[in-house]
């Protein structure tokens, strides 16, 4: 009886994910896929998407690791508020996030970095929505570390940076990889914040999701082809990491 109680909802969950993907692949115009995928629109969008998603990941890593360290190791009061703040981009509608970024960093922003309508702006939009994923994963990973290994390293003469490089980081690797994949994927798929803050310009800020949306208006086959490219990129990443780090 328990098998059914668990198995049936689980099967429905799998179907919920698998069926739309199967429908997408079924409707993909395989005969013309080649020319759509190699069109300049597709190539530009793929390039921009890879650039901005990995760029966003880099920003998240540089900023997110120290932040996760503070959340995991600090005892200062108010760190609960800090964690709540970090989670806000996760619950904020992306378009609202994009508007907020405009008001903060746009031409007339509070800090007029003038990043709107730039590729850097698209990177920033991606980093904004992806950062919480990385920080949460890293904080959890840091909490699981046994700090006594760092003590042992200190007795052996390792300074703080060396302890971090040789003891903390290698043990943090699984959480780091898992968090990075989540953050990268989130940035790759970002739409609302990107269009609102960075705009939509082929070759500069038109990412794959934006290209798909635009194509949906006029050329369904192209939209499906681009969707397949997006799907393929994400799957390729997951396969590349297949279990090696994610399930240690």
């Amino acid at each position: 009886m328990r098998r059914l109680a668990v198995g049936i909802p689980a099967a429905i969950a799998v179907a919920l994910i698998a069926l739309p993907l199967a429908a997408l692949l079924a409707r993909t115009p395989w005969s013309t896929l080649g020319e759509h995928v190699t069109s300049s629109t597709a190539r530009q969008a793929l390039f921009i998407s890879l650039q901005t998603s990995f760029g966003a990941l880099a920003v998240c890593l540089v900023l997110g690791l120290p932040l996760a360290w503070v959340l995991a190791r600090s005892t200062a009061p108010g760190r609960h508020l800090l964690r709540a703040l970090v989670l806000v981009p996760m619950v904020l509608p992306p378009v609202v996030g994009g508007a907020a970024l405009l008001f903060a960093f746009g031409r007339n922003g509070v800090i007029p970095l003038r990043l709107s309508f730039t590729t850097a702006g698209a990177v920033l939009a991606g980093a904004f929505v992806a950062l919480p994923f990385l920080v949460l994963a890293l904080e959890a990973g840091l909490r699981q570390l046994d700090p006594r290994y760092e003590d042992a390293a200190a007795v052996l003469g390792a300074g703080p940076w060396s302890r971090f490089r040789h003891i903390t980081l290698p043990q943090l690797a699984p959480a780091l990889v898992a968090g990075s994949v989540l953050a990268w994927a989130r940035a790759l798929g970002e739409f609302g914040a990107t269009i609102t803050f960075a705009g939509n310009l082929p070759g500069e800020t038109q990412t794959l999701p934006l290209a798909v949306y635009v194509a949906l208006q006029s050329d369904r086959d192209a939209a499906l082809a681009l969707s397949t490219v997006l799907l393929g990129t994400a799957v390729a990443m997951i396969v590349a990491l297949r279990g090696r780090w994610l399930t240690r």
Binding site: R148, Y149, D151, A152, A153, V155, H166, I167, P170, Q171
Partner: peptide
């Protein structure tokens, strides 16, 4: 040099 009670050999 310190040999810990739990040894604490670096696991990785």
């Amino acid at each position: 040099g310190l040999v810990f009670q739990d040894r604490l050999l670096f696991p990785h």
